[in-house]
């Protein structure tokens, strides 16, 4: 299970990084989103992979999952959305101002 999980994570990071290395804003945003998923999962899994364990305390329950990474990741997801939204709008504004969606504002590709 661990190997499967980490492989998925690695693929997401690789795809995210590759997309962020593209020259246009839209693939960049896609890559950033993918990387965001991967980083959240990375943080989350540092609390280990637990199956069928609650983070809700009750007297009968003896074992719990680790709630701390979950709490941290929860806000990270929302902040991640804010960041993606910000970059999207920056990209829109840039394409409006510069007339191109190249990440460096080049009209033709000369990077």
């Amino acid at each position: 299970m661990e190997l499967l999980f980490t492989s998925c994570l690695g693929v997401m990071i690789a795809c995210g990084v590759y997309l962020m290395l593209r020259a246009r804003t839209f693939p960049f945003v896609l890559g950033l989103t993918l990387l965001g998923y991967a980083v959240n999962m990375f943080l989350f899994v540092s609390g280990r992979l637990k199956t069928n364990l609650p983070a809700v305390v009750s007297p009968e329950q003896l074992q719990y999952t680790d709630p701390l990474p979950q709490a941290l990741v929860l806000t990270a997801i929302v902040i991640g959305f804010a960041m993606v939204a910000f970059v999207v709008v920056l990209a829109l504004r840039a394409s409006g101002e510069l007339g191109t969606d190249h990440v460096d504002g080049h009209k033709e590709n000369n990077s």
């Binding site: 693929v11 990071i13 995210g16 990084v17 899994v45 540092s46 609390g47």
Partner: peptide, 29 residues
């Protein structure tokens, strides 16, 4: 570059997940 990054993360996470860990979650629980 991206394969190196992804592979690196996979390896790092594997190294983490296959080792015992100590959490401070007990306090919160």
């Amino acid at each position: 570059l991206s394969v190196a990054a992804g592979g690196g993360c996979t390896a790092l996470m594997m190294a983490v997940l296959t080792r015992p860990y100590d959490t401070i979650a007990g306090y919160f629980l």
